[in-house]
């Protein structure tokens, strides 16, 4: 067992979970609902990149993955979630489960069940440190997560549109009262959330492949990341994602690779019971 290798694996898969978790948080903050199709938006982005890679260089193909994820997120909102606006958040949340199944089945119809690969962004041998190897693509994953954190934080804190979205997160009714288009902001939240998820889904393909059904497990792990972050902070969800990555990679190396998923989802059950509010002690009353 090589601890450093586990750390590298944890960071690279954890970045993927973290960004997917951030995707959950963005949608939840602005609309109050949970989008269970989040993982399948990553899958949509991954296949968007795979298709685009036949005509574009790898970097551009991955950006195309982000665009596909963003469009899929927007369509999900416009076609499934918004029409049910009078039915309440629970119904809207359930329809995202349905949308996830539809997306997964569509992908299976078009791409079958075999895995697809992509070239890494930077060609080159993995970096070798003390017997552990770190693929260059893993550095891209961590770097993109960090970059997304900076960009999203600046967007929500500094731009008027971002502040308007944050206002919806604090008090949707009052946001409407000052003339913020709450529906437009919700659509934007789904789009941004889909785009970052699609991007990270595409960038992880050179390491983890793209299959039609990889969105399900990815979505659940991102969900755990979001819960760890209290479902409220983008940065904390990213930290939560890395934590999930650590649990997963150490469970695989110390216990068994066949039990790694069991252990991660066991963690989800424990979390839901013990700390549904996240790891930090932030309570609603402290936020308001």
């Amino acid at each position: 067992m090589n601890v450093l290798q586990d750390v590298f694996t944890a960071l690279s898969v954890g970045s993927v979970y973290g960004v997917v978790g951030a995707g959950y948080v963005i949608v939840h903050r602005i609309t109050g609902m949970v989008n269970f199709a989040q993982g399948d938006l990553a899958m949509a982005g991954a296949f968007g990149a795979v298709v685009a890679a036949s005509a574009l260089p790898t970097g551009a193909a991955m950006v195309a993955g982000a665009v596909v994820g963003g469009i899929a997120g927007l369509l999900l909102y416009v076609l499934a979630v918004h029409p049910l606006r009078n039915q309440g958040l629970l119904v809207q949340t359930i329809v995202t489960l349905a949308a996830a199944i539809v997306l997964r089945s569509l992908a299976q119809l078009v791409f079958g069940t075999k895995p697809y690969a992509l070239d890494p962004l930077t060609a080159g041998r993995p970096i070798q440190i003390a017997g552990a190897s770190l693929p260059l693509q893993a550095l891209w994953l961590v770097g993109i997560m960090a970059l997304l954190y900076v960009a999203l934080t600046a967007f929500f804190d500094r731009t008027m549109t971002g502040r308007a979205m944050s206002a919806c997160a604090i008090n949707r009714y009052a946001a409407g009262v000052v003339g913020i288009n709450v529906v437009g902001m919700a659509a934007l939240a789904f789009t941004i959330s889909g785009a970052i998820t699609g991007l990270i889904g595409a960038v992880q393909v050179p390491l983890g492949f793209a299959t039609a059904d990889f969105g399900l497990a990815l979505g659940l792990k991102g969900f755990i990341a979001a819960i760890l972050g209290g479902f409220d902070r983008i940065g904390l969800a990213m930290v939560g994602g890395v934590l999930v990555g650590f649990v997963e990679s150490f469970a695989a190396s110390t216990i068994s690779t066949s039990y790694q998923e069991v252990i991660v989802f066991g963690l989800l059950l424990v979390l839901l019971v013990a700390r549904p509010g996240g790891l930090t002690r932030l309570r609603v009353s402290e936020r308001v």
């Binding site: 502040r163 308007a164 944050s166 206002a167 604090i170 008090n171 009714y173 009052a174 946001a175 009262v177 000052v178 913020i180 936020r287 308001v288």
Partner: peptide, 14 residues
């Protein structure tokens, strides 16, 4: 219905 988690001035700017 003020934005409780924002400063007074940010409320006004919104």
């Amino acid at each position: 219905q003020v934005f409780g988690a924002l400063s007074v001035e940010d409320n006004l700017l919104l």
